[in-house]
Write a protein that binds this DNA or RNA. Structure first.
Lengths: 164, 164
DNA sequence: AGTAATCTATCTATCGATAGGTAGACACGT
DNA sequence: ACGTGTCTACCTATCGATAGATAGATTACT
């Protein structure tokens, strides 16, 4: 995927070895396709995240599990986070899709927020949660743009060091 | 701007009150237009950044100047960083444009890298530089997607607290 | 037989891009 | 001061390609 507007039904159908009309059979409108992709991506992301975090008890371990989930997504596909990409072109997306992408980010922030200690000062807790998601999303984008996996690793390393 | 592929010569011309053919007069190919926009954005960004950093002597002050430059860009236009948006769809961009966007990020990382103390451990210095740019880029994206300026402020606050 | 999935064929709208023309500003040599 | 050419910045009109989408026939599965 290279962006919502950069992908066409025909490109997609060609990759699958079918015709574009067949894609419309499953996803009448383009937005339906986008929504399905975001839903699937979100499910898989949180499944992987909860898997990694299952045995993480301490806060630094949970942050590391979070980073690892992003890192695996980046390395396995050499592609940007689907929602990261869609989020960047947010203003050009159909309404429901825009909201679905935003919901993914909301869930991300909420997940890491609840992993932070409950006795943390409220403002700092919110700030840290936003910071962590922002860093990882930004790191994926930079890494893809620069063609440098090291950039992601560096940013994640800095982030983990910040909250050791 | 809502993405490279989401903007057409006609949209742009309509906004300007001229015809699309006249846009082609100034920018024969779409990529020429993209390159010009990135060049202008990059110039303005670093001019603003150097302006903010002029009186910043300490490292935390330089990091704050960096954050402030991003924050102003976000607040003044309520739009994503041009390069942040293009970087996210990097894989779908023409070659030269992709490289111009990557060069902007390279320059960003280099700028903040040289603002970090020279006696910092080399790996940590690189990591911190990547982390800072990633966080701010990600924070802009999140902020736009969620429609919440607070999200950027929170992430920046967390970042500054990490490197006080 | 009946349903689900894919096909062929086509539609309308819009895309980036080009050709060719025009009005106005400016510089020039005489 | 006058025409003459040149340049800029736009215009109208149109191109071939492709976009998302649809109708109706056809195939495959159970």
């Amino acid at each position: 995927m290279r962006g919502y507007h950069a992908v066409s039904f025909r490109d997609l159908a060609d990759d699958l070895g079918i015709k574009s009309a067949s894609v419309h059979y499953h996803f009448p409108q383009k937005e339906d396709l986008g929504l399905a992709l975001v839903a699937r991506y979100s499910e898989r992301f949180f499944a992987a995240l909860n898997g990694h975090a299952a045995k993480a008890k301490s806060r630094p371990e949970k942050i590391k599990a979070f980073c690892k989930t992003y890192e695996e997504a980046l390395k396995s596909s050499d592609k940007n986070c689907l929602c990261g990409m869609l989020g960047a072109e947010s203003r050009g997306l159909p309404d429901q899709l825009k909201q679905a992408v935003a919901a993914f980010f909301d869930a991300n922030i909420k997940w890491i927020w609840q992993a932070l200690p409950a006795d943390m000062e409220a403002g700092q807790r919110k700030a840290t949660a936003a910071q962590i998601v922002a860093t990882l999303q930004g790191a994926m984008m930079l890494s893809i743009s620069l063609g440098s996996p090291k950039t992601f690793e560096n940013a994640a390393k800095g982030l983990i060091a910040s909250h050791a």
